[in-house]
């Protein structure tokens, strides 16, 4: 009832969930061996930034959407230049892509007939 079989592989989410819970329990046990002298809100919990004081948190420090993956996007810049160029936002271009695909499909279907 729970699991799935593809004929060559098996997926059982209940077993996966039980395993996940088991890992959480083990993590909790390992955590319980930690330093009992931990005190919230003291110097123990300060972020270590090469000995510098942690800057005051504010909205300006938030890692914003475009800050993520800029390296990956930059690495794929050649791809993105082309793909963004397709997305012109111009209706006649949308229609041109449609007609282009239609022509290609016609050729394939006639050749395969």
């Amino acid at each position: 009832m729970s699991g799935l079989s593809s004929g060559f592989g098996v997926w059982n989410p209940i077993a996966w969930a039980l395993l996940f819970v088991g890992i959480l329990v083990v993590s909790f046990i390992v955590r319980s061996f930690g330093n009992k002298g931990y005190k919230r809100g003291t110097g123990q919990t300060k972020v270590f930034l090469s000995g510098n004081d942690e800057p005051e948190a504010s909205g300006g420090l938030h890692v914003r959407g475009d800050h993520l993956y800029w390296g990956m996007v930059d690495g794929l810049s050649a791809y993105y230049r082309r793909v963004k160029a397709w997305h012109t936002g111009i209706l006649s271009d949308y229609a041109a892509w449609f007609i282009g695909v239609l022509g290609l499909v016609f050729v394939i279907l006639v050749l395969a007939r």
Binding site: G89, Y94, W97, G100, V101, L102, V105, F106
Partner: peptide
């Protein structure tokens, strides 16, 4: 020809690339 028209028309309305814009 009818199949090509149906396939392309419906694939476009489903949002298949490159007719997804």
């Amino acid at each position: 020809i009818a199949l090509g028209l149906l396939l392309t028309g419906l694939a476009m309305k489903a949002g298949a690339v490159p007719m997804h814009m």
